[in-house]
């Protein structure tokens, strides 16, 4: 049997409740539980952590660099799905002007 450094598990750490899990690195480990145990001291021997995940690296399905630029490009105008794509307050203001409406002083 050739030498083994064991498979790779990617490690994700949540520093504070309410925040997302963030990728912090990887460990070599024979199985998930051992990956978890070993990741704890490699990535949480200092600093804060409220939750830790380990994920087999081979389970990650990722974008490829040669397709990424086109895949994630926003070529045509897609402002209609952004909050800034709307002019509704402007229309309300114009309607109020036309009809002589005014708000009580704030």
């Amino acid at each position: 049997m050739g030498d083994t450094q064991w498979p790779v598990y990617e490690v994700f750490l949540q520093e504070k409740r309410g925040e997302p899990h963030v990728h912090v690195g990887a460990v070599h480990a024979p199985d998930p539980e051992m990956a978890f145990i070993l990741a704890k001291e490699q990535f949480v021997r200092r600093g804060r952590c409220v939750s830790l995940w380990v994920v087999p690296a081979e389970a990650i399905y990722a974008s490829r660099a040669d397709e990424a630029e086109e895949l994630f490009a926003s070529v045509l105008e897609k402002e209609y799905r952004e909050p800034r794509g709307f002019r509704v307050t402007e229309r309300v203001r114009r309607w109020m002007e036309r009809h002589g409406e005014s708000l009580p002083d704030a």
């Binding site: 030498d3 083994t4 024979p30 199985d31 051992m34």
Partner: peptide, 18 residues
Amino acid sequence: RWVREALAAKAARQANGG
């Protein structure tokens, strides 16, 4: 070496456990 090999062998046997 024996430690690394032992854990790899054990993990291979239990691939579907856990």
